[in-house]
Amino acid sequence: MQNPYIPYPVVVDKIITEVDTKDIKTFRFKFVNPEDEQKYAYIPGQFGELSIFGKGESPIGIASSPTQKGYVEFTVQKAGVVTTALHEMEEGTLMGIRGPLGNSWPLDFLAGKNIVIVGGGFAFTTLRSLINYMLFEDNRKRFGNITVIYGARNPGLLLYKDELVEWGKRTDINLNVTVDKGDATWKGREGFVPTVCKEVAPSKENAVAVICGPPIMIRFTLPVFFDLGFSKENIITSLEMRMKCGIGKCGRCNVGSKYVCKDGPVFSLAELDKLTPEY
């Protein structure tokens, strides 16, 4: 019986500082035991518990795509005890990761549809996983048009800057990157995410919107999609809650009759309507 509480040993292989403020970094982990990579087979939208012995664990969405072999990546903001310890780590350090945990972006439901991805700020990590998964050459034909609207407060806070440039060169993805306010060197779009969504006006025909961002962005973006005619079944998001076990036992992320860790974190708006508003 595999003990779901015991992490897989990993080594911090690469650390990428994502933002100018230096408080968001991407950590690339390699499994100490190569066979563990198979056991850690994940789907975009799932999360893992980053396990630092002596500090504890922190639930973080998986930022890499399963199509990227040989490692797994998490993008982490420095916030509490565990993430602060993580940010102080050097490449080569041993630690642990648990998972993969939770449900995932509903790939079977998304297949054959036009996908609209809306991300704000730091909440872009599991969306990045989904985008890279869909853009992978073996997978691309399974999905229709891909429209991405991604915003950050300023250019320095955009994640995955190199990838954004690469995606921008492709013809099979409609990428719209925006910042609330640009700087001297910014040549791209300025404007809040909800406004850009209105301008881009993705069609509701055979489309699903996958939306992740800070509550304020979500609040103003949803009406835009309702106006565009998207149904609640076709708007998907991911919740965050305080978690410990990650497998629906410890009780912390209990919302109504669901556990966000086990039954989520991904829910459609239609599903969220049935939950108690306690998240």
């Binding site: 015991i6 040993p9 780590m89 041993l94 630690m95």
Partner: peptide, 13 residues
């Protein structure tokens, strides 16, 4: 649930 030991490379469990 588990035990671990500090090594120069980090904690090994």
């Amino acid at each position: 649930m588990m035990k671990y030991t500090r090594t120069p490379k980090g904690m090994v469990f």
